[in-house]
Design a binder for these strands. Structure first.
Lengths: 331, 331
DNA sequence: TTGTAGGCGTTATCAA
DNA sequence: TTGATAACGCCTACAA
């Protein structure tokens, strides 16, 4: 049925171990043997069974990547970036979608644990304890979140918030709302905190609304609250909320961005095309993903000869594009 | 380090095989033993090693899902649907993104082959021969494409095209363009063929443009050709092309949809929000994904007792929503 | 009902 | 340089 190392061995007239060597370490075997083996392997269409190899070596060549929602353009972008980089490092990526659910998050990690060498975790919801526990069993790199001493790659949310505020202030906004995303989201906390600190220090008024679900519907739901708060600008936890918001605000007869400006984090490919215009704040997913992979690969390497420990360089959050009344390009 | 079946056996004071039974077939073991084992397992936090199990049983409990672009909303929708259904059938899903590249497609399939029980393949580009070969090694279900006698789940493209044309004709369009997607796309061929047949039989004029890449840029690139063709309606291979098209057409001072109607297949979550309006044709991804999983699971089951062979019921393509001048809801 | 033994495909160790 | 042999963790006859 399926061709094994022994089939190749038989055809090449050598032992299984020689086949193994001829394929893995061609220089540790006589040239003639190597050729015979390689030809036999090719002829039979032999592919080493990675599962069996994993059992024997303890290394699978796979990286697990856990994201809350693979249909969210931000995360699918991360998946792409991770795959590209992982491939360059000779790793395969097994992406897993937790559907924003903590329970499946943990479950998925367990079923995947023995099939990967390490995890890249976008787990904004899971409890610190769970994550620490996972990190004890298997190498883990956290994305966009800090938990204890677990290696992580994060955006510089404070700086991103600063850029947004600078932008809005330049447009003469003084009373600004923040629509909070999921209460348990780490990034949400960071952004809210940064906003509070910054607006306070600049003498701006900050109105906090939410928490709402990070969806179009969430944005629709919070619109009336915002209109009643008489702010001139709104910063939304993400683009989807911002879109719902704009839709509902407009339906109420309020003009965007003349009467009220809307800014959303993350980026949906077509968000720019929306009318009325949405100011989008985007994160450099490509570099984000690459860095995360590099860090995890480092950690895996260090495991061989333990002792060293690394820390990720924090990343810039970049306001990439704006369609606000007074367009301005940040980077 | 990692807790194995033997650790549990020791703690429970039984043999490894009893642990195995107590966990897999609790009824084939004495109640007392079962309890002792289960408690020991819980206490140690034992999780069976799926890799080892796979080696022994030949079944991994994983389904491979290959898609050309996980960032494309159509495919991420399929991934979601597949995961939901697979989970109900006690399977995990390993999604793989081929980046629209035939070579990685094949490569990915090989590295995944021993880690899954079967494949769900969205491989619009790969050659028939490659796919047949894969299908010989391991159970395969093709999505949105027919290759020989490989089980497959497809949309009824002809019917979908009929709905679109009916819609446009009701709006008095007589001269209609089709913007073809990738030349090697099976679905593209099907749609073009259906369009030719149908328009001919209805006495409509069909202008074919393209092929273009299935992206925003592809749409921009083809706009001038269409304007020169003096059609009143355009059907695009997908939403991304349609968006680029609208953008460029509008930039040329032509109004959408007053001067020209644009229809796009697939659906991007925010496509409805675009202005000028885009008529979207959406496919029922949820049911699509579910059906594919069911079919593959069937095939896997039949493998045990081979002999039977199944065929997927073709699926309806549904025009779900339109923002055209004379809105009309199909379903 | 339970335990023992063998095997799944590979790699690593150790002799030869 | 090569070939037995053991081990990875689990499952399943088969025997007790």
């Amino acid at each position: 049925m399926t061709v094994t190392i022994r089939d190749v061995a038989r055809l090449a007239g050598v032992s299984a171990s020689s086949v193994c060597r001829a394929l893995a370490t061609p220089d540790k075997v006589r040239a003639a043997t190597r050729d015979r083996v390689q030809q036999a392997a090719a002829q039979l269409g032999y592919h080493p069974n990675r599962v069996a190899r994993g059992l024997s070596t303890g290394r699978t060549g796979n990286l697990g990547l856990v994201v809350p929602d693979i249909a969210n353009p931000f995360f699918s972008g991360v998946v792409k970036a991770v795959q590209n980089r992982a491939h360059e490092c000779d790793f395969s990526v097994l992406p897993a979608d937790t559907d924003e659910d903590v329970a499946t998050e943990i479950e998925l990690i367990h079923t995947l644990t023995k099939q990967v060498d390490g995890f890249l975790l976008c787990a904004p919801r899971a409890g610190d304890e769970d994550l620490r526990s996972v990190s004890g069993d298997i190498p883990v790199v956290m994305l966009n979140r800090r938990v204890g001493r677990i290696p992580s790659v994060i955006f510089d949310n404070a700086d991103g918030v600063r850029q947004v505020i600078t932008h809005l202030v330049a447009l003469r906004h003084r009373r600004i709302a923040y629509v909070a995303g999921p209460k348990t989201s780490w990034v949400n906390h960071e952004r809210a905190r940064a906003l509070r600190t910054l607006t306070a220090s600049m003498g701006l008024e900050l109105v906090e609304a939410g928490n709402v679900s990070p969806t179009y519907v969430g944005g629709v739901a919070v619109a009336d609250v915002l209109l009643a708060a008489s702010v001139t600008a709104v910063i939304a936890y993400n683009d989807m909320i911002a879109l719902g918001l704009i839709s509902q605000i407009t339906a109420r007869g309020v003009r965007v961005p003349q009467d009220i400006s809307v800014v959303g984090f993350d980026d949906i490919p077509t968000a720019d095309l929306v009318n009325p215009p949405l100011t989008t704040v985007s994160q450099p997913k490509e570099r984000f993903g690459r860095t995360a992979v590099d860090l995890l690969v480092d950690v895996l390497g260090d495991r061989e000869r333990p002792g060293s420990s690394r820390r990720a360089a924090p990343m810039q959050l970049v306001v990439r594009k704006t369609t606000a009344p007074n367009p301005k390009e940040f980077s």
